[in-house]
């Protein structure tokens, strides 16, 4: 059989609107998720045990269940609590909560990666714990935060596809609509996938440039896989 991509061109407006919806929902829920993650990370880093336990339970719960289940629980749970909201908003809220658990782990890791002496030096000149975190620790976490945050954000962009199951008219939903009308599933879902590929690649590329500008990519980038490459090279030489 031959592939016929004219069905894509005929329905380009649907894909375009889906792309827009995906971008908006992803951007807003990722931003909200990151903000929500900050208090969770602060709790997880607290020296008070009960705060750590609450944060830990919150993170463990969301990280061990599929996003589609989280989404359905919000979808039925919010009206249950008397909150009737449009589907894209419901989906965005669910994704923000889901993302917050991943971002909180990223933040916690970055804070723990800053040497303990940095905060102690702040305390020694009389800064409180929070002032020391703000003035000394937080600025140093920024470059540590970027690479894992980019990865998490890309995962969340991909998770937006699940919003199609509650009829949010994003890319995957429009793909299902077009495939239902044209019966050209391979072309349609290849196009759908290509659109996500475009978004995630562009995002990764953009963030990589930000990292470069922040000076985080210096040196370590090359060093990281050199040994792996060495192994791979070894295998290659021998197999010739």
């Amino acid at each position: 059989m031959t592939l016929d991509f004219s069905v894509i061109l005929d329905n380009w407006q649907l894909f375009a609107s889906g792309l827009w919806m995906t971008l908006v929902v992803a951007l807003l829920s990722i931003a909200a998720g990151f903000l929500l993650a900050i208090p969770v990370a602060i709790m997880a880093l607290s020296h008070r045990r009960w705060l750590r336990t609450i944060a830990g339970a919150y993170v463990e719960w969301f990280r061990n269940i599929p996003f589609i289940v989280v989404l359905y629980i919000f979808f039925y749970g919010l009206p249950f609590m008397g909150l009737r909201l449009p589907e894209p908003v419901v989906g965005g809220i669910a994704l923000a909560f889901y993302a917050s658990t991943y971002f909180s782990e990223v933040i916690r890791g970055a804070v723990l990666a800053v040497p303990k002496g940095q905060l102690e030096a702040a305390r020694a000149v009389g800064m409180s714990y929070f002032m020391g975190m703000r003035e000394v620790v937080a600025p140093q976490t920024l470059r540590l935060l970027l690479p894992p945050s980019t990865n998490t954000a890309i995962s969340m962009i991909k998770e937006t596809s699940v919003l199609s199951t509650i009829t949010v008219a994003e890319i995957t939903y429009q793909g299902l609509v077009v495939q239902g009308a044209t019966f050209a599933p391979f072309e349609v879902f290849l196009t759908t996938a290509a659109l996500y590929w475009l978004i995630t690649s562009a995002f990764a590329h953009g963030m990589h440039r930000v990292e470069r500008a922040a000076g985080a990519a210096q040196g370590s980038q090359q060093a990281r896989h050199s040994l792996a490459d060495k192994y791979l090279q070894l295998g290659m030489r021998r197999s010739k």
């Binding site: 002496g117 009389g126 409180s128 714990y129 140093q140």
Partner: peptide
């Protein structure tokens, strides 16, 4: 209170073994 201790602590200057200068 912790606040009071934070206030009094800089009466004593502390120089760390590894200096702990803020690199940023």
């Amino acid at each position: 209170s912790h606040k009071r201790i934070d206030q009094l602590r800089p009466m004593m200057g502390f120089v760390f073994q590894q200096f702990n200068l803020w690199p940023h």
